[in-house]
Design a protein around this nucleic acid. Structure first.
Lengths: 297, 297
DNA sequence: TGATAATCAATTGGTCTTTGTGATTTTTCC
DNA sequence: GGAAAAATCACAAAGACCAATTGATTATCA
């Protein structure tokens, strides 16, 4: 790695602790101290405030952190491009994704990607949209995958795949044979939904509104914090639930769950890639290209 | 300077000669050889082809050159930002400008800029638009100043100042008292013009065309290769000439030359800044801001 | 055309500088 | 007072640079 001194600075700036940074870098603390001092001498400006036992970045340190992030991005892209030239495809890709995508969409995709390009190290952080945008800004991740399409001008959004929220029930459910129900029947059905604030619930509410149905019109039996809990629950009850089609692909195939069409109700959304625009980010682009051609069936 | 090894590579890649690069870097040739070898070992790929006595870049070398350019741009912006924080304003700015701008517009501007920010080293290369765009692409300059507004999507164009092409004559010229002439009188006047292909001539031809006058309608006594020669010539003759107002500011003030208005003919053009878009280029922006507020009178 | 000079990168061996370590000190926080 | 964290110091290992030289190619000129 080039520019080890900058790497040292970067690590210290991220952890705000000389000793921890030293451990992370497999060098001793005095070495870290020295590197920072040398940077400060070189730039003739303090990079950290030493307030007793704590340190924090000075404005100059903030600027340097900003730039080192960009410089490392360039190094990473460079190494990826060169490895591609050698038909090796090596590099590091840090992805941040929201729950549904991370849990149900990415695993097979990442497995396939890793099988084909085993020199590319992928890391996956699961977070909500807001945190993902924050992480992109801090340069903690290279690529985000989100459910909504929040439009922050700071980022570049690219369509990934279409998601569909479907009404599912246990395979032997009374209504399962009917295959479809009308909108009018919906309020009579005992439902499970995700908790308020979750992206999935918001899409459902929005779609119902266009069909002139309020959430309070529905017979909501329970609100659960995760799609997995909802699935487990409905497997053992006559409740139904609105969930992303991707979260039940396996259960549908195994005939454990079944989709019941609600005539006149179509709940769709698109998953989006999100990146900081400007930077080359070759590897992100490479992965996006791969993902776009992946067949999820 | 960080990343001296990359600096060495960059220098060699630009000069395509180890020995010359060594001289430029004030180190010996073996040191250069070693740096390059170490880079090649690190990336596990050859960066230069050694064909007998000559070297040239391999595809990998080309990629690395591309990235090192970008990395150095970041370093430069970084140093500028940090120096600004210290109220020092230091950095390097490489400008490329076309003749008229470089000769008549920039000198006072650069003088004033240097007086205020004497830690910023400015270099000025004089070239035509095409060469300036090439230099920007090669990362040989940071900022271009051109007369036309050629629109290459690779670059970002920003308006600088408005230029006016005026008809001038020696101060005691017969027509000088009239202060203005009509378009009809123009063909009778002995004129000096710039050579074919020059930006100035093109603007004139274009403006005349809208007034329904062909170049061949005019009484063209001579075509000269530089504005300076034209000025010298008309000072000693009864010829007149179309020149940029900026090229005769001093002579107008000294009452050596005078402007004769051609009623119904207005020849204007805009000078433009041109930059590679994408990169931060803080110092370029800083200079542009300064230039925009400069008073040329 | 063939001998000779000039050019250029690689190699070698040795010196000096830089970087990192281990032990210790200083400061601050609880 | 003790734990935690950064600074300081002396020393060892590693790395960078140089001078001199080699080997190979290209240019020059009789």
């Amino acid at each position: 790695m080039f520019d080890f001194r900058l790497k040292v600075f970067y690590t210290v700036a991220k952890r705000l602790n000389f000793t921890k940074a030293a451990e992370e870098l497999y060098i001793t603390q005095p070495a870290v101290s020295k590197h920072i001092q040398e940077l400060e001498t070189y730039f003739k400006i303090k990079l950290f405030n030493r307030n007793g036992n704590k340190i924090n970045l000075t404005p100059a340190g903030e600027i340097l952190l900003q730039y080192t992030g960009q410089i490392f991005n360039l190094y990473n892209s460079l190494e990826f491009e060169l490895s591609t030239l050698k038909h090796e495809h090596s590099g590091n890709l840090r992805i941040g994704a929201s729950t549904t995508i991370a849990q149900y969409v990415l695993p097979p995709l990442l497995a396939s990607f890793h099988k084909k390009f085993d020199n590319i190290k992928v890391s996956l952080a699961i977070n909500n949209t807001e945190q993902i945008e924050q992480a992109l800004q801090n340069n903690d991740i290279d690529l985000g995958l989100i459910e909504g399409q929040s439009k922050n001008a700071l980022f570049k959004y690219t369509e990934f795949i279409k998601d569909e929220i479907v009404l599912v029930a246990v395979a032997n459910h009374a209504l399962a044979k009917k295959q479809s129900i009308s909108l009018k029947e919906l309020p009579e059905i005992p439902l499970l939904l995700r908790e308020p604030g979750s992206g999935t619930l918001e899409v459902i509410v929005h779609a119902l509104k266009t069909a002139d149905i309020k959430l309070s019109d529905l017979r909501m039996d329970m609100q659960l914090g995760s799609t997995e809990s909802i699935k487990s629950y409905i497997m053992n009850s006559n409740c139904m639930a609105f969930v992303s089609i991707y979260s039940v692909l396996k259960e549908l195939k195994n005939n454990e769950l079944t989709v019941v069409d609600v005539r006149g109700l179509n709940i769709e959304r698109k998953f989006h890639f999100i990146q900081p625009h400007g930077d080359a980010e070759t590897l992100s682009g490479f992965f996006m290209e791969f993902a776009r051609h992946y067949n999820f069936r």
